[in-house]
């Protein structure tokens, strides 16, 4: 097998890697964001429940959770490994993202919420127009870190047979006896993806920066 086709074989897994990431990250974002607001504003009991959700999900290795969620899902709704894996990673990420957003909400809320209510805004309006725009800005640095983690964790779905980068590297390493070259290629692709993502989010962060914000 010539070098070009060797690289191409692994690189064609990028589509799956991106696919898994682009499902897991936004679904984790959506769930995490909603749960964070519910945790902060939903009262004590719900807050406790959210604590349990996040503590449990963050206390188990992602690969173990992936297997559990995969077998639960494939047993009940008959999803393909690609979808089951992506959604599982999204659920796992939602716990981490919830903590990021919860922290950001707590550091904005309180006084800003009070100021918004004093003008006559409802709680929902205050969240929408005052808390949310500020907490998103605060959350971006930690969130881009989480985005990098999800890109890297997308490699875990190789274990349930999704032909993404790592899976392909493993296959071709076995058939060509070139493990070093195979895994270095995989590593370089992952690194490039993470690097670009961090750069883009860094730019977004700078763009959203509020001048001279105390």
């Amino acid at each position: 097998m010539d070098f070009g086709r060797f690289i191409q074989f692994i690189a064609s897994g990028t589509a799956y890697t991106l696919g898994v990431t682009l499902i897991a990250l936004p679904s984790g974002l959506l769930i995490g964001l909603v749960l964070a607001f519910v945790a902060v504003y939903g009262g004590k009991l719900i807050g406790k429940f959210m604590d349990v959700y996040s503590t449990v999900l963050r206390g188990i290795p992602p690969i173990v959770l992936l297997f559990i969620l995969y077998f639960v899902m494939s047993g009940t709704v008959n999803l393909s490994p690609f979808w089951a894996g992506s959604i599982s990673l999204g659920i796992i990420s939602s716990a981490y993202q919830m903590e990021i957003f919860r922290g950001a909400i707590l550091s904005v809320s309180g006084e800003q919420m009070m100021a918004a209510r004093a003008v006559g805004m409802s709680k929902m309006q205050a969240i929408r127009y005052v808390v949310l725009p500020q907490m998103i800005r605060l959350a971006i640095p930690s969130w881009s870190n989480e985005a990098a983690i999800v890109i890297k964790d997308s490699s875990l779905v190789y274990a349930i047979g999704v032909p993404e980068i790592l899976r392909r590297a493993q296959l071709i390493s076995a058939s060509t006896q070139e493990p070093f070259l195979a895994y270095i290629t995989a590593a370089l692709i992952y690194f490039t993806l993470v690097f670009i993502t961090n750069r883009v989010l860094g730019r977004v962060e700078r763009k959203l920066t509020i001048p001279a914000n105390p």
Binding site: A115, R117, G120, Q134, I210, N213, P214
Partner: peptide, 20 residues
């Protein structure tokens, strides 16, 4: 309450402007 607060203005010790 939201309707009531519209009609009662409040100014805070720490200003509490919307920073964004």
């Amino acid at each position: 309450e939201d309707h009531v607060r519209q009609h009662i203005g409040m100014v805070f010790q720490n200003f509490l402007l919307f920073n964004h």
